[in-house]
Computed example of a mutant assay.
Amino acid sequence: MDIKSLIPKDKFDLETVEKLKQHSFGDIEPIIPDLLEWLQDMNWPVGQPIAAFLLPFSEKIAPETVKILKGKDEMWKYWILVTFGKNIKNKWVVQEITRIAENPTQDEIDHELNVIAHEINQ
């Protein structure tokens, strides 16, 4: 099986998301960045089930999470914080959440990411 076939084709591709559940983290590790892209808008039908699938692997996806939190897509950061923020204890993720709470960019303030990050740190 081509592991890339487990990447949803569109925001309604729940059938493909269901197939993820049959695979281990080791199987899907190469497509983690692709799966995280579907969390850019949790209003998409595939967003919630992908988030639920990835939640147990929060620590293992920490490097990708840090990249997102250091990026410029504030809505994506929002969904990552809300989805994984309280579960990830990885030092680099915690450090980035603390930075957002204590020294946010203007865009992070405008999107209230500093408020969410502060709540996570409590």
Rank of each mutant, 00 (worst) to 15 (best):
Ile97Met: 10
Thr65Ser: 13
Gln122Asn: 10
Val115Ile: 15
Glu59Asn: 12
Pro30Thr: 05
Gln22Phe: 06
Ala117Ile: 04
Ile7Asp: 01
Glu64Pro: 07
Ile97Ala: 08
Leu81Asn: 09
Trp44Asn: 10
Gln22Ala: 11
His23Ala: 00
Phe25Gly: 08
Thr105Tyr: 11
Ile80Gly: 02
Pro63Ser: 12
Leu69Ser: 06
His111Ile: 03
Glu74Ala: 14
Ile97Lys: 09
His118Glu: 15
Gly26His: 11
Ile61Leu: 07
Lys60Ala: 15
Ile100Phe: 13
Glu119Ala: 14
Thr65Ala: 14
Asn121Trp: 02
Val46Met: 05
Val46His: 01
Lys4Ala: 07
Ser24Tyr: 04
Ile32Tyr: 07
Lys91Ile: 03
Ile88Leu: 10
Val66Met: 01
Val82Ser: 14
Ser24Lys: 11
Phe12Tyr: 13
Lys72Pro: 00
Phe57Gln: 11
Ile7Ser: 02
Thr16Trp: 14
Ile100Thr: 08
Gly71Lys: 07
Pro56Cys: 01
Phe25Val: 03
Leu69Val: 09
Asn43Val: 02
Glu108His: 06
Lys67Ser: 10
Pro56Ile: 05
Glu59Leu: 11
Phe25Arg: 05
Gln48Glu: 12
Ala52Thr: 14
Ile68Lys: 09
Pro104Phe: 09
Asp10Ala: 14
Glu37Val: 00
Leu39Gly: 01
Met1Ile: 03
Phe57Tyr: 15
Glu102Leu: 15
Glu112Gln: 10
Pro30His: 07
Ile100Leu: 12
Leu81Thr: 08
Met1Glu: 11
Lys9Tyr: 03
Pro104Gly: 12
Lys91Trp: 00
Tyr78Trp: 13
Ala52Pro: 00
Pro63Arg: 14
Glu37Phe: 06
Asp10Tyr: 14
Ala52Val: 13
Trp44Ile: 06
Ile80Gln: 02
Tyr78Gln: 11
Asn121Tyr: 00
Gly47Cys: 04
Leu36Asn: 05
Ile50Asp: 01
Asn121Phe: 04
Glu37Lys: 07
Trp76Asp: 00
Lys89Leu: 08
Ile80Asp: 01
Ile31Cys: 03
Ile7Phe: 05
Val46Gly: 01
Glu15Tyr: 08
Val94Asp: 03
Met1Ser: 10
Leu54Ile: 05
Ala52Phe: 07
Thr98Ser: 12
Ile109Asp: 08
Ile32Thr: 02
Asn90Cys: 08
Pro56Asp: 02
Pro45Gln: 11
Lys19Glu: 15
His118Lys: 15
Thr98Ile: 09
Pro45Ala: 11
Lys21Arg: 15
Leu35Cys: 08
Leu55Asn: 01
His111Gln: 08
Asn121Val: 08
Pro63Met: 12
Val17Arg: 05
Pro63Ala: 13
Lys89Ser: 13
Gly26Pro: 01
Thr105Ser: 15
Ile88Phe: 11
Lys91Cys: 00
Lys89Pro: 00
Gln48Ile: 13
Ala117Lys: 03
Ile97Trp: 08
Asp13Phe: 03
Asp27Ser: 13
